[in-house]
Amino acid sequence: MTFTAHFNYWVAMALLTVGLYIVIARGNLVKKLVGLSIFQTSVYLLYISAGKIIGGTAPIIAEGLRVYSNPLPHVLILTAIVVGVATLALGLALVVRIKEAYGTIEEDEIHSQDEEP
C-alpha cells in the first residue's frame, strides 16, 4: 500500500473536503453552489479512478485492442454529471428569485431580514 497507489483517491478526498467546506462555511448562495459542484466532481474522480485499468484504453471496442477500462463507472458518472448540472440550474434559479425577494444573496442578511416581523 504505497502512497502513489491511492494518489487519485487522496486528491478526490481533498477535493471533497474543499467542496464540502465551501458549502457549509460560506454564506454567499452562489459560492455555496460552486462548492457543491466541486463536492460532486470529487465523487466523479473517485468512480472513474476506480474504473481505470493500467494499460487499458477507452471502452470503445476496436481491432487490435485487448484491455479496456471499465465502462460502467463512466455510465454512472455521465448520469451523475447531468443530475449535477440540473441541480445547479435549479439552485441558481432559486438564487435569482431570492435576490429579487430579499435584495441580497448573503445568508446572514437573509436571516436578519426574516427575523424582523
Binding site: 487519485n8 466523479y44 474522480l45 472513474i48 479512478s49 474504473g51 481505470k52 487499458g56 484504453t57 477507452a58 471502452p59 470503445i60 479496456y68 477500462s69 463507472p73 463512466h74 458518472i77 455521465l78 454529471i81
Partner: peptide, 9 residues
C-alpha cells in the same frame, strides 16, 4: 478524466 480513459465523461 481523459487520462483515465473516460472519454465520454
Amino acid at each position: 478524466l481523459t487520462v483515465l480513459d473516460a472519454v465520454d465523461v
